[in-house]
Design a protein around this nucleic acid. Sequence first.
DNA 1: GGAAGCATGTAAAGTGTTACATGATTTT
DNA 2: AAAATCATGTAACACTTTACATGCTTCC
Lengths: 205, 205
Amino acid sequence: MTSSLPIPPSPPPARKPRLNPSSFLLLGLIRAGVQSGYAIRRAIAQMRMDIFWATTHAQIYPQLARLEDGGYIARRDDPHGDRQRNAYSLTESGERAFLTWLGVSEQPPMELRDEGLLRLGFADALPPARALDLVVQLRKRAEEAEREFREEIIPVSESFLQLGIRFPSVVGHLGADYQRWAASRLAALEQELRSDPTFAARDQE
Amino acid sequence: MTSSLPIPPSPPPARKPRLNPSSFLLLGLIRAGVQSGYAIRRAIAQMRMDIFWATTHAQIYPQLARLEDGGYIARRDDPHGDRQRNAYSLTESGERAFLTWLGVSEQPPMELRDEGLLRLGFADALPPARALDLVVQLRKRAEEAEREFREEIIPVSESFLQLGIRFPSVVGHLGADYQRWAASRLAALEQELRSDPTFAARDQE
DNA sequence: GGAAGCATGTAAAGTGTTACATGATTTT
DNA sequence: AAAATCATGTAACACTTTACATGCTTCC
């Protein structure tokens, strides 16, 4: 900390910014051949990866800069006409970091952040008919989400099967099956509530 | 927009800070009779409400101050010996805001933030045996979570049934059933992968 | 007397969202 | 010629986590 020490002329050591799940999402996509920030955005949207880990372009671009800064990815110019574009590729260090992350054995618990379920937990404050509406809403939301999985996400993820890439499809089916399960579980809850005398009797309260 | 207009000497209008799901979590608990910040922490932990909406005490205390500031809750001193304590109660305005939120018909889509599923989507980068490990890990996590729901969360939530408060228990059972479903779905995936020749053949790679 | 639990706060750093901002190329 | 899409970035704000900080009370 003394200012009299001669400053060694060494190159600035590569800062190693902390990597978080968003970083690994980017590393994984770049590793899979998705080269530009914009293409990453599109890939995330198409496969609805934002369901498991949301990211917007306002995070992607600074994050790419940080990853480059840390030596995990390499950038080269890849203009298209006069329109600039950056093409990124994984460095050895990035490959190592990504595979290490994939192999880690402890999983942080999943987070479910759902305003709908939060509301449901407080539904005793509503008149029974409104509480029932809430359950119906949640069931419809699950049905809608299942449709989206089957019609949009699974077809995209299955297009990778021919390249020998199977896990995006595995996750797509998992997501769709979950939504179907949730819809039927919520439908059962609906029936249960409707058939409850205390509940049904005060239906117009 | 002219600067020559005389400024009316109206009293500073009560700031109405924007309410977010965390705010409603607090309002809902205070409404249910949970009076202090510390008691809110405990209630959230015991019922694992943090599964649907995570909140720590570093958010709770400033948030309570904001809600009081906005006139949604009223504070009174409630010391215990020499140890200070604040007791909050809902104002009419807070009651209205809470019920309005509960009755809103559009639900933001649920967010499923899960590093485990994010990893699974990239599992093609792992040797098959490691990918299988990941599935096993996720299944065990679900089994563990189910146990916690059945042993810790459901008993607490069912203790409210005698007070006529049923929805915490509804949500507890929903959570437990979901974990059970996830565990069996992941077990099926495990079997499917093990019986896949391409996959099983390279088990030691 | 010490540990565990009760009780409340702040500071700093990190993460995430929305809006602002710009400009090129391709499609209709 | 206009609209859609490609492409990249920044600024301001909001939200979240982790660590720091303090002091009382109850139980062992």
